[in-house]
Design a protein around this nucleic acid. Sequence first.
DNA 1: ACTTATTTTATCATATATGATAACCAGTTC
DNA 2: GAACTGGTTATCATATATGATAAAATAAGT
Lengths: 76, 76
Amino acid sequence: MSNKEQLQLAIGKRIKMLRESKKITQQDLAAKCNIEKSNFSRLEAGGTNPTLYTLKIIADNLGVSLCDIVSMEDTK
Amino acid sequence: MSNKEQLQLAIGKRIKMLRESKKITQQDLAAKCNIEKSNFSRLEAGGTNPTLYTLKIIADNLGVSLCDIVSMEDTK
DNA sequence: ACTTATTTTATCATATATGATAACCAGTTC
DNA sequence: GAACTGGTTATCATATATGATAAAATAAGT
């Protein structure tokens, strides 16, 4: 598994964790972020290498900072 | 100017600042990151919405964390 | 079991990030 | 002026992130 794939999995896991800690469903958050729900699923599953803007939107809707989002150590 | 454009400018500025603080040239860092130098110029100028993986590579080569990279308040 | 809610997966289209290349600009040095 | 360094811009090609849609699978509720 490549570094990129590992990063994708880690960020997906992180977002999932943060979302669940806020007790929001995937589709709720996807809707709020104006992100296609199937893509949200793919993202959380580690299937995408999201852009900074996408991460920013998600962070804002989760009420956390970008730094929080990319701090993935706790999810390893 | 849209939020996305503002974010792009901010991240470009942040990367430039970090790079300069390490006294590395744009093309040196671009080469280390295996990023096309013209794209690096575009990125620092706020012309791109970089992917997480791109940011990770840059952060690693700058010897900083992803969190450091996306912490853009100091550059505003 | 059935219904509803949530998530996943696949496929294709569109948008765009990045790669590749070339040309240009400005400053410095010889 | 020529060569070098550092950076910028434009153009086009390729790779891929995201959007849209549908179907399938799973989980939760009645």
